[in-house]
Design a protein around this nucleic acid. Structure first.
Length: 192
DNA sequence: TATGAGATCAACT
DNA sequence: GTTGATCTCATAC
Protein backbone atom coordinates (compact mmCIF):
# COMPACT_ATOMS: atom_id res chain seq x y z
CA UNK A 1 0.00 0.00 0.00
CA UNK A 2 2.82 2.38 0.84
CA UNK A 3 4.56 2.12 -2.54
CA UNK A 4 1.59 3.01 -4.71
CA UNK A 5 1.51 6.43 -6.34
CA UNK A 6 -1.42 8.73 -5.69
CA UNK A 7 -3.01 9.80 -8.97
CA UNK A 8 -2.63 13.54 -9.68
CA UNK A 9 -5.02 15.93 -11.45
CA UNK A 10 -2.78 15.66 -14.55
CA UNK A 11 -3.79 12.01 -14.83
CA UNK A 12 -7.42 13.06 -15.29
CA UNK A 13 -6.67 15.98 -17.62
CA UNK A 14 -6.66 13.73 -20.67
CA UNK A 15 -9.24 12.11 -22.92
CA UNK A 16 -11.80 10.06 -20.95
CA UNK A 17 -11.11 7.26 -23.38
CA UNK A 18 -7.53 7.10 -22.13
CA UNK A 19 -8.32 7.73 -18.47
CA UNK A 20 -11.21 5.26 -18.18
CA UNK A 21 -9.31 2.08 -19.15
CA UNK A 22 -6.29 3.20 -17.12
CA UNK A 23 -8.43 3.53 -13.99
CA UNK A 24 -9.25 -0.16 -14.13
CA UNK A 25 -7.07 -1.87 -11.54
CA UNK A 26 -6.34 1.34 -9.61
CA UNK A 27 -7.28 1.45 -5.93
CA UNK A 28 -10.02 3.81 -4.77
CA UNK A 29 -10.34 4.60 -1.08
CA UNK A 30 -12.73 6.99 0.69
CA UNK A 31 -11.74 7.51 4.33
CA UNK A 32 -9.61 4.41 3.99
CA UNK A 33 -12.51 2.28 2.78
CA UNK A 34 -12.65 0.86 -0.73
CA UNK A 35 -10.77 -1.42 -3.10
CA UNK A 36 -9.64 -2.06 -6.65
CA UNK A 37 -11.64 -0.44 -9.44
CA UNK A 38 -13.16 -3.25 -11.48
CA UNK A 39 -15.55 -1.44 -13.80
CA UNK A 40 -16.05 2.09 -15.18
CA UNK A 41 -17.91 3.88 -17.95
CA UNK A 42 -16.79 6.91 -19.97
CA UNK A 43 -19.12 9.86 -20.62
CA UNK A 44 -18.28 12.69 -22.99
CA UNK A 45 -20.15 15.94 -23.60
CA UNK A 46 -20.71 14.98 -27.25
CA UNK A 47 -22.42 11.81 -26.02
CA UNK A 48 -26.24 11.99 -25.90
CA UNK A 49 -26.25 9.72 -22.83
CA UNK A 50 -24.04 12.07 -20.81
CA UNK A 51 -25.50 14.47 -18.25
CA UNK A 52 -23.37 17.23 -19.75
CA UNK A 53 -24.86 16.75 -23.22
CA UNK A 54 -27.00 19.78 -23.99
CA UNK A 55 -25.27 22.22 -21.73
CA UNK A 56 -24.54 23.14 -18.17
CA UNK A 57 -27.15 22.88 -15.43
CA UNK A 58 -27.01 23.24 -11.69
CA UNK A 59 -26.69 19.50 -11.22
CA UNK A 60 -23.84 18.85 -13.65
CA UNK A 61 -21.92 22.10 -13.09
CA UNK A 62 -18.90 20.31 -11.64
CA UNK A 63 -18.52 18.33 -14.87
CA UNK A 64 -17.80 21.65 -16.57
CA UNK A 65 -15.09 22.47 -14.05
CA UNK A 66 -11.45 21.36 -13.89
CA UNK A 67 -10.45 17.66 -13.99
CA UNK A 68 -9.58 15.59 -10.95
CA UNK A 69 -12.79 16.43 -9.09
CA UNK A 70 -15.66 14.22 -7.93
CA UNK A 71 -19.10 14.56 -9.50
CA UNK A 72 -21.82 12.95 -7.38
CA UNK A 73 -25.38 12.87 -8.66
CA UNK A 74 -28.65 11.30 -7.57
CA UNK A 75 -29.82 8.42 -9.69
CA UNK A 76 -33.47 7.36 -9.91
CA UNK A 77 -34.18 9.54 -6.91
CA UNK A 78 -32.55 7.27 -4.36
CA UNK A 79 -28.98 6.34 -5.22
CA UNK A 80 -25.76 8.34 -5.32
CA UNK A 81 -23.31 7.71 -8.15
CA UNK A 82 -19.63 8.69 -8.16
CA UNK A 83 -17.85 10.12 -11.21
CA UNK A 84 -14.34 11.43 -11.82
CA UNK A 85 -14.24 14.62 -13.92
CA UNK A 86 -11.75 14.32 -16.80
CA UNK A 87 -10.19 16.29 -19.67
CA UNK A 88 -9.29 19.99 -19.67
CA UNK A 89 -11.73 22.34 -17.93
CA UNK A 90 -14.89 22.95 -19.95
CA UNK A 91 -14.82 19.63 -21.76
CA UNK A 92 -17.49 18.29 -19.38
CA UNK A 93 -16.38 14.67 -19.53
CA UNK A 94 -16.37 12.16 -16.71
CA UNK A 95 -15.81 8.55 -15.79
CA UNK A 96 -18.55 6.76 -13.83
CA UNK A 97 -17.19 4.34 -11.25
CA UNK A 98 -19.46 1.31 -11.53
CA UNK A 99 -17.79 -1.38 -9.43
CA UNK A 100 -14.81 -2.11 -7.21
CA UNK A 101 -13.37 -5.24 -5.64
CA UNK A 102 -13.62 -4.50 -1.90
CA UNK A 103 -10.28 -4.87 -0.12
CA UNK A 104 -10.15 -2.23 2.65
CA UNK A 105 -12.71 -1.61 5.38
CA UNK A 106 -14.82 -4.67 4.66
CA UNK A 107 -16.57 -4.47 8.03
CA UNK A 108 -17.50 -0.82 7.50
CA UNK A 109 -18.90 -1.52 4.05
CA UNK A 110 -20.91 -4.48 5.27
CA UNK A 111 -22.39 -2.37 8.04
CA UNK A 112 -23.31 0.47 5.66
CA UNK A 113 -24.81 -1.91 3.12
CA UNK A 114 -26.46 -4.23 5.65
CA UNK A 115 -25.11 -7.23 3.75
CA UNK A 116 -22.53 -9.91 4.33
CA UNK A 117 -22.26 -10.98 0.71
CA UNK A 118 -18.91 -9.48 -0.27
CA UNK A 119 -19.52 -9.74 -3.99
CA UNK A 120 -22.59 -7.49 -3.74
CA UNK A 121 -20.99 -4.78 -1.61
CA UNK A 122 -19.76 -2.61 -4.48
CA UNK A 123 -20.92 -4.22 -7.73
CA UNK A 124 -22.92 -1.33 -9.13
CA UNK A 125 -22.67 2.47 -8.97
CA UNK A 126 -25.39 2.91 -6.34
CA UNK A 127 -24.05 0.10 -4.16
CA UNK A 128 -20.51 1.38 -4.44
CA UNK A 129 -21.47 4.88 -3.33
CA UNK A 130 -23.39 3.50 -0.37
CA UNK A 131 -20.57 1.16 0.69
CA UNK A 132 -18.00 3.96 0.53
CA UNK A 133 -20.28 6.46 2.22
CA UNK A 134 -20.24 8.79 -0.79
CA UNK A 135 -22.94 11.48 -0.79
CA UNK A 136 -23.60 14.64 -2.73
CA UNK A 137 -23.33 16.78 0.39
CA UNK A 138 -19.97 15.39 1.50
CA UNK A 139 -18.17 14.58 -1.74
CA UNK A 140 -19.55 16.48 -4.75
CA UNK A 141 -17.00 18.91 -6.25
CA UNK A 142 -14.24 17.64 -3.95
CA UNK A 143 -10.67 17.10 -5.14
CA UNK A 144 -9.72 13.51 -5.82
CA UNK A 145 -6.13 13.95 -4.65
CA UNK A 146 -7.13 15.19 -1.19
CA UNK A 147 -8.74 13.54 1.81
CA UNK A 148 -11.05 11.74 2.13
CA UNK A 149 -10.23 10.44 -1.34
CA UNK A 150 -7.22 8.29 -2.12
CA UNK A 151 -6.73 6.99 -5.63
CA UNK A 152 -3.65 4.85 -6.04
CA UNK A 153 -2.15 3.98 -9.42
CA UNK A 154 -2.21 0.34 -10.35
CA UNK A 155 1.05 -1.56 -10.16
CA UNK A 156 0.27 -4.03 -12.89
CA UNK A 157 -2.01 -3.87 -15.89
CA UNK A 158 -5.06 -6.11 -15.62
CA UNK A 159 -6.67 -7.77 -18.62
CA UNK A 160 -9.31 -5.38 -19.91
CA UNK A 161 -12.65 -5.94 -21.55
CA UNK A 162 -14.83 -3.29 -23.18
CA UNK A 163 -18.50 -3.31 -24.10
CA UNK A 164 -21.70 -1.30 -24.35
CA UNK A 165 -22.80 0.73 -21.34
CA UNK A 166 -25.63 -0.15 -19.00
CA UNK A 167 -28.89 1.46 -18.00
CA UNK A 168 -29.00 4.12 -20.72
CA UNK A 169 -31.34 4.59 -23.65
CA UNK A 170 -29.23 6.81 -25.91
CA UNK A 171 -25.98 5.97 -27.68
CA UNK A 172 -26.27 2.45 -26.32
CA UNK A 173 -24.02 1.18 -29.09
CA UNK A 174 -20.92 3.02 -27.87
CA UNK A 175 -18.56 0.49 -26.22
CA UNK A 176 -17.42 2.86 -23.48
CA UNK A 177 -17.73 0.47 -20.55
CA UNK A 178 -14.49 -1.03 -19.29
CA UNK A 179 -13.80 -3.75 -16.77
CA UNK A 180 -11.36 -6.32 -15.46
CA UNK A 181 -11.72 -9.43 -17.57
CA UNK A 182 -13.36 -12.23 -15.62
CA UNK A 183 -13.79 -10.22 -12.39
CA UNK A 184 -16.49 -11.54 -10.08
CA UNK A 185 -17.30 -8.04 -8.90
CA UNK A 186 -18.71 -6.60 -12.12
CA UNK A 187 -22.19 -5.10 -11.92
CA UNK A 188 -23.06 -7.23 -14.95
CA UNK A 189 -20.95 -9.66 -16.97
CA UNK A 190 -19.54 -8.40 -20.24
CA UNK A 191 -20.89 -9.91 -23.45
CA UNK A 192 -18.26 -12.16 -25.02
C1' DT B 1 -33.93 -18.14 -12.93
C1' DA B 2 -36.78 -14.43 -14.70
C1' DT B 3 -39.59 -10.68 -14.87
C1' DG B 4 -42.00 -6.64 -12.58
C1' DA B 5 -43.01 -3.04 -9.43
C1' DG B 6 -41.75 0.28 -5.94
C1' DA B 7 -38.79 3.60 -3.94
C1' DT B 8 -38.20 8.88 -4.62
C1' DC B 9 -36.26 13.39 -6.69
C1' DA B 10 -34.35 16.58 -10.04
C1' DA B 11 -34.19 17.68 -14.84
C1' DC B 12 -36.68 18.11 -18.74
C1' DT B 13 -40.99 18.38 -22.07
C1' DG C 1 -46.30 14.55 -16.16
C1' DT C 2 -42.37 11.59 -17.66
C1' DT C 3 -37.80 9.88 -17.44
C1' DG C 4 -33.55 8.42 -15.62
C1' DA C 5 -25.66 6.49 -15.88
C1' DT C 6 -30.29 1.97 -10.01
C1' DC C 7 -31.26 -1.52 -6.53
C1' DT C 8 -34.16 -4.57 -3.87
C1' DC C 9 -37.83 -7.40 -2.97
C1' DA C 10 -41.88 -10.04 -4.41
C1' DT C 11 -44.09 -13.15 -7.25
C1' DA C 12 -44.12 -16.42 -11.11
C1' DC C 13 -42.17 -20.23 -13.62
Amino acid sequence: MAKAQQLKPAFFARSVHRVAPELIGATLLVDGVGGVIAEVEAYHHTDPAAHSFGGQTERNAVMFGPPGFAYVYRSYGIHWCLNFVCEPEGSASAVLIRAIEPTEGLAVMRRRRGLKEERLLCSGPGRLAQALGVTHAKHNAKRLDRAPFQILARESKPELVAGPRIGISKAIELPWRYGIKGSHYLSKPFPI
